[in-house]
Design a protein around this nucleic acid. Structure first.
Lengths: 333, 333
DNA sequence: ATTGGCGATGTTATCGGTAACAAGTTCATT
DNA sequence: AATGAACTTGTTACCGATAACATCGCCAAT
């Protein structure tokens, strides 16, 4: 009669004990096919939905995952908002709550696992102290599991496309940050240029469109026509685009531009940016999925055995070159 | 010795029963001050953190809130991402899980309450069937509780600023949508113009920057200098800005532009947009706060009494005019 | 002195699910 | 036929918190 269908109701209808019904869900191999069918039928008939609060309580679990964002960026930044959506989507469908932590107040309150993005060298001191499964967003040298995108491959895609499109000069606009993602992007550019026998040239800025725009305008005479700018972010690319337009350069014929990230920003410029798109949402989902898997492996909590000292998990996503109107041949897309 | 501090531990340390400790949290008026102090002291000493799974289970509650986004927009859209952040922030700090639902598959799975955004006339058929507390984002004629921003006041701010800044012609660029937020924005413009004895002029577009940009470029001759464009979104405003720049108009001296929303987009244009900023994040938090309040009122679930038929809650936030570089006098900010 | 009422506190059962253990079957082995 | 290993199913206790009920002590009214 109650609004809520419990395992008990299912068990009664199937003429088995509550425990058997539970086993059908958690250890199906321990139950005979015959009973399994009966239980499945009853579950369907009653539209059984497991109660996750009860599950959590029985398993001594919080069903809370903390996402720790260490960069000083605004959470409104579409990149992080998108990542967060990906994480949230997966966690929600598994009835986990997501807690977003922007400072280092991660200590308060228990949780089942951590996702950390933007960790720097000094951070690993306290990250090492975390006694719950943890996965990082972004590669690291500390043997931590991580998910990342293949940055080197991304700039390889952009650079070789620029070469194939016939641009004679190809300049890299990088972000002035000592982060490994930036190193990888620059390496992808360098390697591709060297293999093609081209002379590389790198300039770096803080990641604001006004920086790259000013640079373009102030050094306009030094840029020959038939040049492509490989940018390490869509922000820098937008600045380049505005600078070229301001100086009345022709895009994409005289000057090409490629961005990097492909999250929202690339679509609001005019003409629309050719960019290296990261599957940010999928990466968010993946990291959540891996973390949940890790959590169920690690249970029950083994006090002697640190949860983050197993075989390393590394998942690297391949970005994709989206050809649009800031490079030649965009119609070939 | 256990890692988790329970109410029982607190009770033991305070030399009271578990029930008394529980009452200190939920019905403090039933406990003498003396015992209350003891319990508080014990809670602090042990750093007690309530177990929400247990709470949920005992209260026959899911601790899940569903956010139903009915517009066909991308969830990557910064506006919705920001709203979501606001909702998530509040829910997280109260240990509620947020489920984001984009289609009408809201039926599956139980929850404690709904937040709905973008509801249209036809939607109220099924919204009426929801038997859990519900709050809408955006005003409505159906007696539903809602949170919204004061759109009329927003365009009043923008329009009167344009008048004060000395623009002679003031044109409204609206969104071609039969939604009440758009009506309110247009009314705010109209009323302000009429009171000032100015002649209003409204043009409408679908909400893409290319639309307004094309319009500006194609009708360039018809715009006299000393005109300000009051736009119903930052997207349209960006298009206007690009159009004017393309035609070599001077911003803000010859032409002024104001946007609407103030979520991310306003900051990536060059020059930066003057805009009517909505406190979207705060609105998200507020709507979550109201919903949780409503949920605790409504408990225990009263089968005869529909949860959405009480005195109406209406919370309207005032937007703020952010003066930047697309209108005159921006240095007065 | 007995009774009754009230406020403060403790006891029990319960929410829905699962681990640990107990009990019952079947079947091969001696 | 007796023994027991292997497998299947049921029973009990418990996760942490709370509502409902029971109990206790105190004081006023008879």
């Amino acid at each position: 009669m109650g609004l809520i269908v419990t395992l008990n109701d299912v068990a009664k209808l199937a003429n088995v004990s509550k425990m058997t019904a539970s086993r059908v869900i958690n250890h199906p191999e321990q139950v005979t096919d015959e009973l399994k069918q009966l239980v499945f039928k009853a579950m369907k008939e009653l539209n059984y939905q497991p109660n996750f609060a009860a599950k959590a309580l029985a398993a001594n679990t919080t069903r809370i995952i903390k996402l720790i964002i260490l960069e000083k960026v605004d959470t409104v930044e579409p990149y992080y908002a998108t990542l967060l959506m990906g994480v949230a989507q997966f966690l929600n469908s598994h009835q986990y709550a997501l807690q977003v932590v922007t400072q280092k107040n991660a200590g308060i309150g228990d949780c089942d696992g951590y996702i950390i993005t933007g960790a720097r060298r000094d951070d690993f001191e306290w990250i090492n102290e975390l006694n719950r499964p943890t996965i990082l967003f972004g590669e690291n040298r500390h043997q931590y599991d991580f998910v990342d995108s293949d940055n080197k491959y991304g700039t390889f895609l952009a650079t070789s496309a620029a070469i194939n499109d016939g641009y004679e000069h190809i300049i890299f606009f990088g972000i002035d940050l000592k982060e490994s993602f930036e190193y990888s992007r620059e390496r992808g550019y360098m390697d591709t240029m060297q293999k093609a026998g081209r002379e590389p040239q790198i300039v770096r800025f803080s990641n604001h469109s006004s920086q790259s725009q000013n640079y373009i305008q102030e050094h306009w005479q030094s840029f020959e026509k038939n040049t492509c700018f490989i940018c390490s972010s869509d922000r820098l690319a937008i600045g380049v685009e505005r600078g070229i337009q301001h100086m009345n350069g022709q895009i994409p014929e005289e000057f090409g531009i490629t961005g990097f990230d492909g999250v929202f920003l690339d679509q609001i410029s005019e003409p629309k940016l050719t960019t290296v798109k990261q599957p940010v949402m999928e990466m968010g989902s993946k990291i959540a999925e891996l973390l949940l898997k890790k959590i169920t492996w690690a249970l029950p909590l083994d006090e002697d055995h640190h949860p983050n000292r197993t075989n390393r998990i590394e998942v690297v996503f391949s970005p994709e070159l989206i050809r649009r109107q800031t490079t030649r041949n965009y119609h070939l897309n």
